[in-house]
């Protein structure tokens, strides 16, 4: 049986790990290569690096971090942030990433999903979505780190993403993100029920029970968290042991 994946995410700026709480008060807490290796020791199923570097020079430093990580971390590595073109995807995969995550740029230019999937294979194109509730069972898609409402219906976008050949969706709830009150179960359920590709749950994890709950109540095949793991409130190992005891299959 396929195991549910637990995925720690590291936000990286200028080659260093940071984590913004609600995108504010970013603080510097370490070397991404070391953090990724530590997560692997905790049996993380994948590692996500999210590049929040703004400058061109910073991008080079970031790709160097990816390169160094790929030499000592032998679980899948996904890289998101700043990917705008097919050339960016190529450069990121060549640095050692196994998948790229595209978010705002995919909304602005959905062809990027199709071109990426056609050239590099669906398996390496993950589409990140930031969405917010606007009514009963209705959500819209935001871009630019959750700042701009595109007025695009979430479920319509999910259908489009699947059609374009994405291999996976990472669904982040803007309402749940940073609250630590659990994943956005209704939104995840709606998306999982409307697509046939893997969905990673993101945003809202605060307690160990949240992970078991998202797997019990939705079709999500993976759950992602950042600060929770980064500040060692929980380890990946703790989460897995708890899930296993609740009857969720984990590695």
């Amino acid at each position: 049986m396929l195991a549910k994946r637990i995925i720690p995410c590291l936000d990286v700026r200028d080659g260093k790990v940071v984590k913004g709480v609600n995108f504010q008060g970013v603080r510097d807490v370490g070397d991404p290569v070391e953090c990724a290796a530590e997560y692997t020791r905790q049996r993380a199923d994948e590692i996500v690096f999210y590049d929040i570097t703004a400058s061109y020079e910073g991008r080079g430093v970031f790709l160097d971090v990816v390169r160094k990580t790929a030499k000592k971390v032998f679980v899948p590595l996904t890289v998101g942030g700043g990917i705008k073109t097919v050339d960016d995807i190529r450069e990121t995969l060549r640095a050692g990433a196994d998948k790229v995550s595209v978010n705002s740029q995919a909304v602005k230019n959905p062809r990027l999903i199709k071109e990426g999937a056609d050239i590099f294979g669906s398996q390496c194109i993950c589409v990140g979505i930031d969405a917010k509730k606007i009514g009963e069972n209705k959500w819209t898609v935001y871009i630019n780190g959750g700042r701009v409402d595109m007025g695009l219906d979430l479920i319509d976008w999910v259908h489009q993403i699947e059609q374009l050949g994405a291999g996976e969706i990472c669904l982040n709830s803007i309402d749940a993100d940073g609250t630590k009150e659990g994943f956005d179960i209704p939104m995840l359920k709606a998306v999982c029920d409307n697509c046939n590709i893997p969905v990673i749950a993101s945003g809202g994890a605060g307690k160990i029970n949240d992970f078991a709950e998202v797997f019990e109540k939705t079709g999500a095949t993976a759950a992602l968290a950042a600060s929770l793991f980064h500040f060692r409130e929980l380890t990946v190992g703790d989460v897995k042991e708890y899930c296993r005891n609740r009857g969720v299959i984990v590695r």
């Binding site: 396929l2 195991a3 549910k4 669906s122 398996q123 046939n196 590709i197 095949t221 993976a222």
Partner: peptide
Amino acid sequence: GLIIPHMGWNK
């Protein structure tokens, strides 16, 4: 109902 691709860790 099978989710495709088969993506993740399996025994």
